[in-house]
Design a protein around this nucleic acid. Structure first.
Length: 270
DNA sequence: CTAAGGACCTGTCGGC
DNA sequence: TGCCGACAGGTCCTTA
């Protein structure tokens, strides 16, 4: 599923189609996701309007004047817009029908995502302890270096820690470390000032580029308009184990860090 | 407090 | 062709 660029792509596609439209009906088709979808969502949203759709980390926030619906897409979740009466598909778990007839549907085979309701999203337990957004000035080299010095773990695990910075998932962690020429297993305390600076710049530029291309489609990510993401063609190391490095022609290696596939070039990265 | 591993669930792919 | 294990974009929770 979705890493930050895919969530942002989803938000941009969904927002103009759902904002300020009156909700006619809400259907909870499968309430058991990562956590149960609260029943109150089905009643509370009737005849209400979603005023804005925003994003914090990989959480999509659907704001109303009485509270916020939080949606996380987990690994395999998608949100799509459909015309009235269009047939349900396998793993469609939730939908919002607008008075206009359009339907926003949540589909998630693995059910790792969640749909929750909160009256104050800023105080919500899932959102209150998150680190800075990667594309804001708060995420800078001085900040990252201070986190590196304080951590007792490797640099890849550090940048994937949502308390340090949000939105850097496995694909982009691998890609950013390649761009910054840092081997993923390196102890964070050994990252230099210049490397922290290059890593921050790499994370920002790679995320921006991927958002521009509509995210990364590996198997099952499609934007709400049905289009896949085109960032896959730009991947340097992720999913390229045993293939040649585009930069030095050495073989891309694969190891496991934090139970996640980790790919790197031992010649380009140190 | 931190860090590491487990857990959640379904689908797909490669190997035999 | 069929079965079985390994693996997959996330991240909270439990344990040490």
């Amino acid at each position: 599923m979705p890493e930050l660029p895919e969530v942002e792509t989803t938000k941009r596609a969904i927002a103009p189609l759902i904002e300020n439209k009156t909700i006619a009906k809400v259907d909870i088709l499968q309430k058991q996701l990562r956590w149960m979808i609260p029943d109150e969502i089905a009643t509370i949203l009737i005849n209400k309007k979603i005023t804005t759709v925003t994003r914090r980390a990989k959480y999509l926030l659907f704001h109303t004047n009485i509270g916020t619906m939080i949606i996380h897409l987990g690994m395999t979740g998608t949100l799509t817009i459909h015309p009235a009466n269009s047939a349900l598909k396998k793993h469609d778990h939730f939908q919002i029908q607008l008075k206009s007839g359009a339907i926003m549907r949540y589909n998630d085979p693995r059910k790792f995502g969640c749909i929750l309701w909160t009256h104050d999203y800023q105080q919500h337990r899932l959102l209150s302890n998150l680190g800075p957004e990667p594309l804001t000035p708060a995420f800078n080299s001085k900040y990252l270096l201070s986190k590196c010095m304080a951590a007792k773990k490797n640099i890849k695990s550090l940048i994937m820690d949502s308390k340090v910075v949000v939105g850097v998932g496995n694909i982009y962690a691998n890609e950013s470390l390649f761009a910054a020429k840092i081997i993923p297993s390196r102890s964070a305390t050994l990252v230099t000032e210049n490397e922290a600076d290059l890593l921050v710049k790499s994370i920002k530029s790679i995320l921006k580029k991927s958002i521009k291309l509509g995210g990364t489609t590996l198997k099952d990510f499609y934007a709400p308009d049905g289009k896949p993401g085109y960032f896959k063609q730009a991947l340097s190391v992720y999913g390229r184990e045993d293939q040649n490095c585009y930069h030095c022609d050495d073989i891309i290696q694969k190891i496991v860090i934090g139970q996640r596939a980790t790919t790197f070039c031992a010649t380009c990265q140190h």
